[in-house]
Design a protein around this nucleic acid. Structure first.
Lengths: 193, 193
DNA sequence: CGCGGGTTTGATGATGCTCAAGCCCGGTGG
DNA sequence: CCACCGGGCTTGAGCATCATCAAACCCGCG
């Protein structure tokens, strides 16, 4: 399990992990298994853990007053499920995270975050991840204010084809901010090319 | 000019600036003045500078194939205008940043970024800012997929009232992803309460 | 006074939502 | 083996929201 994490870090950080670093990470990242539909985080709880997905698929969503779910993020292998606000500030989470496929992950308790962030390779990784997150969010925001639904859909089919393959269509629709019926009609049009 | 920056940092970072830190920051953050409509960054250029606004107001936008501008961000006092992707990776910018009001800012050249990030107070500030940015983007994304235009407008009037006061309505509309006509009608409805 | 930028208003059409019904398909139990 | 069930996907009709285009208005400023 931990090898996937080490590989991930060494491929992306500008600093490599030492043997000692690896021992620390083994201590603090604990394995966890979730079955399909199990919760990783529930709305109203504090997000105690940040996850790293070794194998599986998850999603983060927020429910509105009419109990409709709005999907904020999908997570697959090598992604980091968590509610950043709740994890960082200790506030109550306004989002839920659950497993869509059976999932193996490593989880890092909030209490150990500072210890782990002492590791040089992790510091570098964090910078890299934060930049990428900022860039990804900016692109998604631009799409949401500038593109109609059909082009937003085409956009993610090229940027995140694995989402399309692994999550059902009604969740993709929710992620795009449209209804499943509208997405169904968009796909039919694209098929008729 | 620099005092505004020092004050900003000390109020937010968990570490305070030493006298020596301040000297360093004075060396690397150079004052710049922009008149209304002056460019800070043009699409197609590399973003050499990150700015810190001491006084004024700016915006970042992307132009589509029909030359329509889509506003991604507004910046006022204590905000950090830059194209993060271009600044970090040295790629060509796909967005433009210009001044809406006459603006005084301090700018940090990419070349000096690493030196400045040696400063402990800056490291801590960066963590704080990245968390806040992630949180803000997540809220904006949720609004864009879950709320109709009128509620998105109400949302920013409470979250960012200074944007409403300082930028013209057609720019607010662009930021929200709607037309100025639609925003005008939304406002009339709200006035009729 | 006239100009330019910003805002408003109206008419019309496109886009996307809601509600309701039916289809498809894999899994379960009789 | 078949019947049924549930989840996901599709289709259609009617309606709400929002965009487009065109025109007028408003107001500060040279």
């Amino acid at each position: 399990m931990h090898d996937a994490l080490f590989k991930y870090i060494n491929e992306r950080s500008t600093t490599q992990l030492s043997t000692n670093d690896k021992r620390l990470l083994k201590d603090y990242f604990t394995p966890k298994h979730l079955r399909k539909k199990d919760y990783f985080l529930k709305e109203g709880d504090v997000c105690r853990y940040k996850g790293f997905i070794v194998k599986g698929a998850m999603r983060q969503y927020s429910s509105d007053e009419r109990a409709k779910e709005h999907i904020l993020n999908f997570y697959v292998e090598n992604w980091w499920p968590s509610n950043r606000e709740s994890y960082f500030m200790g506030t109550l989470s306004e989002t839920t995270i659950d497993a869509w496929e059976d999932t193996d992950l490593l989880v890092l308790d909030r209490q150990h975050l500072e210890l782990v962030e002492e590791i040089e390779a992790i510091k570098k990784l964090k910078i890299y991840l934060d930049e990428n997150m900022a860039i990804a969010y900016q692109k998604r925001t631009l799409a949401s204010i500038s593109l109609p639904a059909d082009l937003r859909y085409k956009d993610i089919t090229v940027r995140y084809p694995e989402f399309i393959e692994r999550f059902p269509q009604h969740m993709i629709a929710s992620y795009l901010g449209i209804t499943k019926e509208t997405l169904s009609r968009i796909r039919r049009k694209l098929d008729d090319h």
